[in-house]
Design a protein around this nucleic acid. Sequence first.
RNA 1: GGAGAGAUGGCAGAGUGGUCGAAUGCGGCGGUCUUGAAAACCGUUGUACCGCGAGGUACCGGGGGUUCGAAUCCCUCUCUCUCCGCCA
Length: 424
Amino acid sequence: MLNLRFIQDNPELVIEKLKKRNFDASEIVKNILDLYKQKNRLQGQADQAKAEMNKISKEIGILFREGKADEANAAKTRTSEIKESIKQFDIDFAEIEKKVFDLQVQLPNLPHDSVVPGKGEDDNEIVKIVGTIPEMDANALPHWELAQKYNLIDFELGVKLTGAGFPVYRGKGARLQRALISFFLDQAREAGYEEIQPPLMVNEASAYGTGQLPDKEGQMYHDATDNLYMIPTAEVPVTNIYRDVILDAKDLPFKNTAYSSCFRREAGSYGKDVRGLNRLHQFDKVEIVQVAHPDESYKILDKMVAHVAQLVEKLELPYRILRLCGGDIGFTSALTYDFEVFSAAQEKWLEVSSVSNFESFQANRLKLRFREEGVKKPQIAHTLNGSALALPRIVAALLENNQTPEGIKIPKVLVPYTGFDIID
RNA sequence: GGAGAGAUGGCAGAGUGGUCGAAUGCGGCGGUCUUGAAAACCGUUGUACCGCGAGGUACCGGGGGUUCGAAUCCCUCUCUCUCCGCCA
């Protein structure tokens, strides 16, 4: 969420920048400014009343100790009125604070200057396209048919065990999954990321910390008995490592990578692009997360993009990088690059990674700060994350693009991990 | 699942109604001493909000209550630990 002080000091800037998202913030910002003034006035009054009260209480204590009980009791009678007004101030203050907060969380992050305005995905900028799109045989099979033909993934069995969107990987299909996970983790480690194995369920505080709550409540699986949420991405537990902490500036950036299964209810998304591995309730992903100094975060974003690009290249998949437009960028992001690989048999681009700089938007909610040498006041850090990479669509593209009459070829870089170079 | 104990500053740990934002120790930072370091000694060391500032307010797991006054008393919730049971 945006910092209140910042909104207060830069109302026009906030409104102007959010226009790129087709988000009209004028009403909300105006209300926030009004409430903020009220809040401060109220706090002034309340603090004054409390100061008065504290002073009297202290005096009463001294009087009692000196044995002047009469004077002490006389002083007591003066307090009841102040006490009442304090009570009322506190009630009003809490109410206004809640109103401000409710408005504050409605404002999305300010897009970076490089983000172009736009309505939706059609307006995204294609930064670059790498690799050549393979010419496929007319009878090339989509991955769900290949998965069945070579007995790699059993979607039907998943339905039996759990439900749609929970596929069962088996044999070389399962081994391919494991190989990809190891490969991605090793690559991240070599790039200096510390590997984390996080819990797959988180508590409410963590779900709030990264903004899954309150807005996206319906997108997470929730265990009501213990009030825990299945993570939709490793970003949630990993980023929450840094909730409520003050870091040393000289230790920045913090770099973490984590493999996890991800669980998403995907409520309301049935019917389109859900075939095979295209959209699942449970899938695997290796995530990279960085906590950065504000001055460094965009340099770091570029490095993260380069890291992801290099992964896709090593897998020999044709891909393109998009810079998301204002209308398509996520609520919490200031700048996002999406990676899409070309899936040859489906003949379409599939999103396999999303790399974002959240600037201070997420850190502000997390209370993730750092302290600069010699500066007393802690500052809000920047957070970034990206998928590196999400497995299912990578697998879909690998199967489809690498199919040959002899079988499915495994990219060279993966062979040491799979232990086989062809699926036949 | 049963029984018990506990939650205080970066950590450890005192504090059971007022002078407590909080002893003491460790750690951190600065300094003295030293060729340098260690040791010793001295000083310093929480966060947020409001205020131009002086300063004020809040925070001792969360919420509520008693009281002129709560870290301290009461209620409630959450979490952690120990023992027993079960168990990968």
